[in-house]
Amino acid sequence: MNDPNLDGVAIQFRDVSFRPVDNREILRDLNLEIRRGETLVLLGRSGSGKTTTLKLINRLLDPTEGTVLVDGRPTTAWDVSRLRRMIGYVIQEVGLFPHFTVERNIALVPRIENWPTERIQKRVHELLQLVGLDAQLLSRYPRELSGGQRQRVGVARALAADPPFLLMDEPFGALDPITRTELQREFLSLQERLQKTVVFVTHDMREALSLGTRIALLEAGRLVTVDAPDQFLNSTNPLVVAYVDAFRTDVRTSHHRGTS
């Protein structure tokens, strides 16, 4: 009855609120559906609750109220390790294991799933190609990589066991604009091939517009709207307009700076 092909909804937030023990509300009455195979971008400024929303999906957090459903089943009803292993997770701080080589970092999930060694090796090489990393980096440690290489390793690690879901928390943050654009382009071509259900967090509207199938705007723990990129740009919702305007001003000033 949970046949994933029967309905288009992969992840669903039903009346979800999240309050940590100190009782400050971080998310309030969140209702959101994420469709199978889409890239849903969570957009919002710092502290709006984007990371919290992701952690409710892979159960690093439990909702205080409401339910988060993954494949139609509440996250609290899943075996937590099983749930997490079908959800690739790229965390905001990258979080590579400093004592593991690049190879072992990428192979993390296949190893804990006890894949045979040859299969792991083959998979690691596939992934290197996929994220555009050179094979000579395999024996290096994370501290010996550039920021961009680390981010790519983080993405490869999340994709390793070919999970149907992918949570990406500002995966291209802290990169120069050129590398960032390059990784975004690679993400798009990757996603075209892999068709994962992706929840992608960013506060950069340009990134949201180019990567998202739909964009969900969060503001102070509440969902403002969910819209396709072109509708989002033309929205009349004041909060969206404010966000879009801020972005336009930003583009204009940087353009002026660039030409003068």
Binding site: L60, R84, I91, G95, F97, L108, I112
Partner: peptide, 18 residues
Amino acid sequence: VDRAVVEAGRGMGMTDRQ
């Protein structure tokens, strides 16, 4: 131990023992 590292491990489905 860096909290982000532990969180990454947990988020990827490592058990407490692992």
